[in-house]
């Protein structure tokens, strides 16, 4: 286990002057412009923003799947220029290999590293035990529930002992109860492993509940609109979500995102234009109602 659980925090992510554009027939389309973010070693940072704002693009650039048009991405001072086992990734679509059992999925990264079979089997069993999945080691992913699949996905990404963990809306497809349990599991693993986490979500509550800091992105072309530190103490409990501190943070983030979402939906919606539609606004502006 010495390889998978480290005691010193590691994984300093730095994204500087980052922009990314796609080539289309009408010319370059800017997905992300002029973005700087950083994640301190051992820090849990979330990125929220309206859909299509480029938050997943940014994450994929940190993972090494996309090349920046300008700017650089570094992890612990080393430039990122391709995917690597140093940056573990968890995808929304689970992305477990259907032809491998739960344990073989977890073993995959260790196998790629050339670890002998007996050794990696033992490591995978231990990790699955930590996640409460030892009873399912011989099952194929198809037989698992969404929450279990994603737990396997997280364990698999952590098995190689990465410096950072990147998560792209990992709990987006789960029901509310499972989601809460998964957040708890993720928090526990993160505190144990002391690695840096970069977490993309569209769920504001989730971002606040999990993170040390939250970046809020603007509508496309995406850039950082605000950086919000989350001073809530740890360990965090479900009941904190009702505290005034939490709610204040939620209100703040909510209004930031609403502004951007409205922009993303095609500019300002004119309240006067809605009058003929027989929608009772009770004296509020449309932006508040939405």
């Amino acid at each position: 286990m010495s390889e998978t659980i480290a005691t010193t925090p590691k994984g300093h992510i730095e994204v500087k002057n980052f922009s990314l554009a796609y080539e289309t027939i009408e010319g370059a389309v800017q997905a992300v412009t002029d973005t700087q973010i950083h994640v301190q070693p051992g820090e849990f940072v979330s990125i929220v923003g309206p859909s299509g704002c480029g938050k997943s693009t940014l994450l994929n650039a940190v993972a090494g799947f996309l090349k920046s048009t300008t700017g650089i991405v570094t992890v612990d001072g080393e430039r990122v220029n391709g995917p690597s086992a140093e940056r573990g990734m968890v995808f929304q679509q689970y992305s477990l290999f259907p032809w491998k059992t739960v344990r073989e999925n977890v073993e995959f990264g260790l196998k790629m590293r050339g670890m002998p079979r007996s050794q990696r089997e033992r490591a995978a069993r231990t990790l699955l035990g930590l996640a409460g999945l030892e009873a399912f080691e011989k099952h194929y992913p198809e037989k698992l529930s969404g929450g279990m699949k994603q737990r396997v996905g997280i364990v698999r990404a952590l098995a190689t002992g990465p410096k950072v963990l990147l998560l792209d809306e990992p709990f987006g497809a789960l029901d509310a109860q499972t989601r809460v349990i998964m957040q708890q599991i993720l928090t526990n693993m993160w505190q144990r492993l002391k690695i840096s986490v970069l977490f993309v979500t569209h769920d504001i509550d989730e971002a606040i509940f999990l993170s040390d800091r939250v970046y809020c992105m603007t509508a496309r072309p995406g850039s950082i609109k605000a950086e919000i530190p989350i001073p809530l103490e740890r360990p965090r409990q479900q009941s904190m979500m009702m505290s005034s501190e939490f709610l204040a943070l939620r209100r703040g983030l909510m209004s930031l995102i609403r502004e951007e979402s409205l922009k993303a939906m095609g500019g300002e919606i004119n309240d006067l234009g809605m009058q003929g539609l027989n929608i009772e606004l009770h004296g509020h502006s449309l932006a508040d109602v939405i």
Partner: peptide, 18 residues
């Protein structure tokens, strides 16, 4: 072949042959 699975393998350290 689902490209997400290819990406998952890549960030677990798999190279072209693997």
């Amino acid at each position: 072949v689902d490209p997400v699975l290819v990406r998952a393998a890549q960030c677990l350290g798999a190279r072209e042959r693997s």
